[in-house]
Amino acid sequence: MILALAVIFLILVVLIGGDRGVRSLLALVMNIVVFFVDIIALKHGMNAYVMTLITIILMSITVLFFQNGYNLKTRATFLSILLVTFTVFIIAVIIAAFSQISGYNELNMYEDEASMLAGSVTINMTAAAIAMVIVGISGAVIDVAIAVSSAVYEVSHKNPHLDEKKLFASGMRMGGNILGTTINTLFFAGIGESLLLFLEMKELHYSLGQLINSKALFQMIFPILMSGIGCALIVPMSAWIMGTFVRKYQS
């Protein structure tokens, strides 16, 4: 079944996407490789935060410089992505320090015989969880960043006399337009996995109190919220950085 799906997927991408399709497949493969390296490094006890930084940089490089070329636009986007992921990272670390997002939750604890597996784990699972949240948001953040930067770049190209403030405003407008649908996408991808979780909670007669304090729920919602925060923050950040870059570069 998986193989069949994969084959159909590949055929469709090449058939419909043509050249561009192949290129986005290559980028996907590169991302998967980076992802695997990240996992293996984590397994061998590398610092999860350092690995996150490296992973984010590598993934941005593949998507930005490989797919869109190395130029002023992609450099500005790259910088804004780094700044925003770092900000979200700080927020995530602070919240995670109090709220315990790592490891098994109360529901999947018994499915994997978690307690038997746990004894030999010596790496910090909280750090690993945060690392994965941050890597996970990078896709959507890069997406929004490229859209906003491109818009600002285009506008400034067509209207060379607009000042930074106007450029920033046009970037914000553009960002506002796509932020809604991006959050929608993230939301559905996030809750797609939750139907069975919620059904199980119903089966166990969770009260409202149990629900909002549940680790399982928190582990599900936390990445969605962090992605949303990242996507929202990247709008003003890339609008501002792109606007400044374009004007500096011209004078």
Partner: peptide
């Protein structure tokens, strides 16, 4: 085509990043 590549990437990351911590535990075991 601009959005196709990035959208696929977004799906990939949101699906797999969530499961990695538990897979990590299994790899270590």
């Amino acid at each position: 085509y601009d959005i196709m590549g990035t959208m696929i990437n977004v799906l990939f990351l949101s699906y797999f990043c969530g499961t990695i911590p538990l897979i990590l535990i299994k790899l270590i075991n």
